[in-house]
């Protein structure tokens, strides 16, 4: 039983962070995030930007798959749509970066809603497979619509400029990417305090009863797809500004599996899980790199080993979490928190 949680108003009871201790931790975390770029090396800034981009995309996927129960294996392809949208806007239109990102999100949301249309007729696994089909079709478009995507050669993207400031290096981009990641997560957290979020969860848990209780299924399923795709589109746009070159190979099918793995590892249907999953899955390859580096004197070809080992580890993480910890890191985290609620006075 937690103590110190008595509330005076309903609003206080429904706040995202409902105790002062939580709010203090949150403040500390934000302060650390602001201070981080001034303390960290280039490598860690690079990683932080990549993690933040992944947080946005994983949060989006968690909305559609974790909360609404519609398994999507197209998140990477959706990111591709956003990335190409930004690349096109930057190179052909020259519009401002923030506008480009918004447009990338909106365009991808439209594509996502289109991809969600089979949910009119099919659900569950059939829908998952339909998203594989859509993702393959999108890849075909990336590789073959030469006038927009420049085919397999891809597009080089100039650095983002906001109010005349060029955001070339990770240090500068950090101040664009991180706030957007914050907003994305906050938006998702808010969503699940309202009727829309409840409708999503109801669809996941028992869609036919949800319909009888007043939730128009198709509209909400498409909305969920569109929202998840909006997140992917923004993440993809940031990705384009971050890596500065977009090719059809940038967003392979395994990247979609990477995102799926992230929500499984982090915790499906958990906002915190999206963050933990994105951080964890982005850091795993780095840890493996170090591991392989340490073992390199023993290996004949350490570099060649890295990629398959990474593939294997991703697979094992998916299987292991689904079998042993289906609620992911978020559940482990809350177990730890419960332990400390009364610590050290636990009987």
């Amino acid at each position: 039983m937690r103590i110190g949680t008595a509330k005076q108003t309903y609003a206080a009871d429904e706040a995202l962070f409902d105790t002062n201790v939580q709010r203090a931790w949150m403040g500390l975390f934000i302060a650390l995030c602001v201070a981080f770029p001034f303390m960290a090396s280039e490598y860690w800034l690079y990683m932080a930007c990549l993690v933040a981009i992944h947080v946005i995309s994983v949060t989006g996927l968690n909305i559609v798959t974790g909360f609404t129960g519609l398994v999507s294996l197209g998140q990477a392809a959706f990111m591709g749509v956003g990335a190409y949208a930004v690349a096109y806007a930057e190179t052909k239109l020259g519009t401002p970066a923030l506008l480009n990102l918004l447009a990338a999100g909106l365009l991808t949301a439209a594509v996502g809603a289109l991809v969600g249309i089979p949910s009119l007729r099919v659900k569950g696994l059939y829908l998952a497979i339909a998203t594989i089909a859509s993702s393959i079709i999108l890849h075909f478009i990336f590789a073959n619509w030469d006038s927009v995507t420049n085919g397999v050669k891809g597009v080089s993207v100039p650095p983002a400029r906001i109010f005349g400031v060029e955001l070339g290096r990770p240090f500068a981009l950090y101040f664009l990417i991180l706030p957007l990641a914050f907003l994305s997560v906050l938006g998702a957290a808010n969503l699940f305090r309202t009727r829309i979020g409840r409708a999503f969860i109801a669809i996941r848990d028992r869609d036919i009863s949800a319909e009888v209780l007043g939730i128009p299924l198709l509209r909400y399923k498409l909305m969920s797809f569109a929202l998840a795709s909006f997140y992917a589109g923004v993440a993809g746009g940031l990705w384009a500004y971050f890596f500065r070159v977009v090719t059809p190979e940038s967003f392979p099918f395994v990247y979609s599996i990477f995102f799926l793995a992230a929500i499984i590892v982090g915790g499906m249907g958990s906002i915190l899980g999206s963050i933990l999953g994105a951080v964890f899955m982005t850091m795993v390859p780095e840890v493996l790199k170090i591991g392989v580096g340490v073992a390199s004197p023993l290996l004949s070809d350490a570099v060649a080993v890295l990629s398959p080992v990474r593939t294997i580890v991703f697979g094992i993480l998916i299987i292991g979490f689904l079998v042993f910890e289906p609620h992911g890191l978020a559940e482990i985290w809350s177990r730890i928190r419960r332990f400390f609620h009364l610590w050290p006075f636990k009987t």
Binding site: V71, L125, A128, V254, I257, L260, A261, I264, V305, S307, P308, V309, R310, T311, I312, V313, F314, G315, I316, L317, I318, I319, L322, V323
Partner: peptide
């Protein structure tokens, strides 16, 4: 279904390795 996706990933990695 997602477990089998993980399995596919493991098998690909094993073959490459």
């Amino acid at each position: 279904f997602m477990v089998t996706i993980g399995l596919g990933s493991v098998l690909i990695g094993l073959v490459e390795l």
